[in-house]
Nucleic acid binder design. Structure first.
Lengths: 148, 148
DNA sequence: TATCTTTGTATCGCGAACGATATAAATAAA
DNA sequence: TTTATTTATATCGTTCGCGATACAAAGATA
């Protein structure tokens, strides 16, 4: 059996698994405020800057519009955001927070801390985390620029 | 705006994005042999050890059977595996490689190398990778044991 | 033996992801 | 000003991923 074809030797499987498990850890916290994890990501983008076209949101999340559009529609149906035609460019759809969506920020403010507890482990520390972030950022940059 | 609620400060978003992008990098390589990435993971489990019950495969991939069962059915329909009732325990479904599935291993053997090229970046090197693996393994272990 | 509990797998429903494709508005070229 | 091209979103179909739930076989208990 090829050593390289073992699960234990693969970076992607680790990332795939870690991403799924940490998203699962978010679930009980997010369901309390009525959001899924991808929806929470969109909210963070909008809390940081309100009133953005779909494309800007998609780019910040490294997602395609065919993923983001249905996501936004569900969030609109839930009353967290509004979607309206752009005035300068009629092709654009501008996404804005509703009062309900804006109010959610304070309710979500404790989530990063709560999650920090769940994720706390021996090898990820204030000393090692920056190195981990750098590696992941580098990987993301390499893969996202290679894709075009 | 809360600093903790920024996308840039979050481990989960990095993992989520990195996992998606690296899975996308696999796509052109895997579609050539007719597999999706999760199906490729199942094949690796079976190449390492043939004839396993559904539950063993699910555990090794940190997935639930309600994800794995439909996955296996699609793979059975494609002719890569067979599913048969266990003899010792009639509840179990034993998953085996078909000749077609076994033959795929040699065709897949170049994939890890090809992907290594795509993933190659400054900060992930033979020196830093073991540390990265350790952090991810630790995180996976922490999250998977906390979940029960 | 009859009943209760656990275990292994499967079904259902919904929300992502994403490749492929479509559509309309904006821009460029002829 | 037509015509062609690019850009911003959206639609469609398929495959995950997973919470909730169902069901039958196996094991434990009464």
């Amino acid at each position: 059996m090829q050593e390289q074809l073992k699960l234990d030797n693969q970076l992607c499987f680790r990332l795939y698994t870690a991403a799924r498990l940490i998203t699962q850890a978010y679930h009980p916290l997010l369901s309390g405020i009525g959001l899924t994890y991808p929806q929470y990501l969109v909210m963070m983008v909008l809390w940081e800057q309100d009133a953005q076209p779909v494309n800007d949101i998609a780019k910040k999340l490294y997602l395609e519009t065919n993923t983001v559009t249905p996501l936004l529609k569900r969030m609109e149906a839930e009353g967290f955001i509004s979607r309206s035609k752009g005035k300068a460019d009629a092709r654009q759809v501008i996404v804005k927070l509703t009062p309900k969506g804006r109010k959610l920020e304070s309710q979500a403010s404790c989530i990063p801390f709560q999650l920090g507890q769940a994720v706390a482990c021996r090898s990820i520390t204030p000393e090692t985390a920056p190195g981990l972030y750098e590696m992941l950022d580098d990987l993301i940059h390499t893969l996202s620029s290679a894709g075009r």
